[in-house]
Design a protein around this nucleic acid. Structure first.
Length: 219
DNA sequence: GCGACAG
DNA sequence: ATCTTGTCGC
């Protein structure tokens, strides 16, 4: 799957990031939804123990098709902008245990809405070759107004004059989420998928499932 | 120089 | 990320 030798220092990580950034593929909008969606998340304990979880759901119905986990030790410190180097190792290991190839990866974090336009979702997409996008709970970069109050409304997320994502309301009157393309998927499609994954809660069902599973795998 | 800073 | 009590609303 992946013979990972990961960067140990910030300098090395920045170099890897810069190199991989050029491999991001953009995509035109796609009208139909993929048959499945795969969510990923990582949980941490009080020390340096971490657990990654990946959960594949049937897009129509949101029922679990397959789920995998992987426990490990954190090898890279949390550094804003280099987040991927901390979570990617265990996430890729868990992904490697899936029997069914993911149609699209839904990441908990940002994609292009990143200082150097290469957030976790981009990194995950490039390394796996699968379409990927990010759904973040809080802003990282960019400015934006307030999206309308109802579910489905959104406003562009702009950073340095570029539209890097969308601030999307997934539930009426609830704090919006930050959606951004990662790899081989357009922003409009990512937003449509996000809405399909949030029939009831603020966060995508994929993220919710992966979150609970990663926590459970931690013990 | 002073904040801000995905999870 | 994770640690936490109470509280408001359906």
């Amino acid at each position: 799957m992946h013979t990972g030798q990961w960067p140990t220092t910030i300098g090395e990580a920045l170099a890897v990031q810069e190199e991989l950034r050029g491999r991001v593929e953009f995509a035109d909008d796609c009208p139909e939804l993929p048959p499945t969606v795969t969510g990923l998340d990582v949980a941490y304990d009080e020390g340096d123990g971490i657990a990654a979880a990946v959960v594949t759901l049937e897009t129509a119905g949101l029922t679990v098709v397959e789920a995998r986990t992987h426990r490990a030790k954190a090898v890279f410190p949390y550094e804003p902008g280099l987040f991927a180097f901390r979570e990617l190792p265990p996430l890729l290991a868990a992904l490697g245990r899936l029997e069914r190839e993911p149609d699209v990866l839904v990441c908990d974090g940002h994609g292009l809405a990143h200082p150097r336009r290469f957030g976790l979702a981009c990194h995950l997409g490039v390394l796996t070759g699968r379409p990927a996008f990010g759904v973040g709970k809080t802003r990282f970069v960019g400015t934006h107004g307030s999206p309308g109050p109802s579910r489905g409304m959104s406003v562009p997320l702009v950073d340095a004059g570029e539209e890097v994502g969308a601030v999307l309301r997934t539930q009426d009157g609830v704090k919006p989420v930050y959606v951004s393309a990662g790899h081989r998927i357009g922003l409009a499609h990512a937003c449509r998928l996000t809405l399909a994954l949030t029939p009831r809660y603020r966060l995508p069902e994929t993220t919710r499932q992966a979150d609970r599973l990663s926590r459970a795998a931690l013990r």
